[in-house]
Design a binder for these strands. Sequence first.
DNA 1: CAAAATATGGAGATCGTCTCCACTTGTCAA
DNA 2: TTGACAAGTGGAGACGATCTCCATATTTTG
Lengths: 189, 189
Amino acid sequence: MTADKPLRADAQRKREALLAKARELFDAGDFFDLRFDDFARLAGVGTGTLYRHFPTREALAEAVYHGEVAALCDRARQLQATLPAAEALATFLRGMVDHIHAHEGLARTFATLMTHRSGALTEGSQALEQAVTDLVAIAVKDGAIRDDVDAGAIMMALHGIAAAHNRPNWRTEADGVITLVANGLRRPL
Amino acid sequence: MTADKPLRADAQRKREALLAKARELFDAGDFFDLRFDDFARLAGVGTGTLYRHFPTREALAEAVYHGEVAALCDRARQLQATLPAAEALATFLRGMVDHIHAHEGLARTFATLMTHRSGALTEGSQALEQAVTDLVAIAVKDGAIRDDVDAGAIMMALHGIAAAHNRPNWRTEADGVITLVANGLRRPL
DNA sequence: CAAAATATGGAGATCGTCTCCACTTGTCAA
DNA sequence: TTGACAAGTGGAGACGATCTCCATATTTTG
């Protein structure tokens, strides 16, 4: 399911060009404001080619998103190994806010990926959710946090943060959410 | 700003027809899946008329949403008057989850209204946010909850809940978020 | 190096959204 | 009433974005 096809040389090249340009626009935040056809031109590729590689804008967004998610997951694992469970979780969440803050595109993807009901969760979101689930599981086992709240709830909160990234004082409010979550996770007396 | 124009009789009728049909589809959850032109037909109205009354899909959604928001705000005021502050807030939030659960359309509107960066917040959202802000302010004054978290953070969490309304076990997770928030709001030792 | 397989690009089909205006309906004064 | 003016209507078609299709180009394979 991962090693699909041995892709031809030029195809590989075009695909990479597409991804490179996408990443560029992604961080600039222009990605979602662009006509999809124009994006093809920008990347020096015909529309047909673009569509064959990435059937929809979201598919492309997700491909980019994938790299970022991988990095985030690594970070999660690293924190998990070096910090006490509850702290690892809190630090990870704050890191997510930083990341969303720094990468406009990630926020939008995160948001649209949720809004556009895609039925099944996308691969990227699942990986991220798994990372959170793991962090939570460990913290629970250590008795560091309450055990009656699902990791899904935390994902929801994160989605809220990402979806609202255009609010006037987003940063303060986002930090507020994290504070609430981190605090809310503490075991009730 | 409220009493715009003395609208003609037939115009009033058409407008009402539009709103009625919209409400119907809204609760069924079909509203956002429909071609906007087709919606006009469904309501027995020409496209031109539809567009004059409601220039965009969101405008119409918001008009419907408006009624619901009014009800929710009333509820907030009522709770504020009859319950201790912190409890009023928590109860209100749980009520929101119930409401979103019962009205598919509300959830979607809530979500798209946020995602589609409309720059300024819409009237409806503002009213709702104001209600939450009031509940928070009172609870803070009573010393019932911590004072370092903005009402905006709570709105974000709610948005997260609404945006994710299509997740498999939404209800459980949504309740989880509320638990986190309610718990997180308690004053730190 | 020829043939088969694979990929390309961009012209144009398709499909929602939205505008425009010739016509209908309501209002109001006489 | 009725005429004349204002207000509103509907739907054909302009528009703009997405996506398909296939004649052509490139790579791989034998």
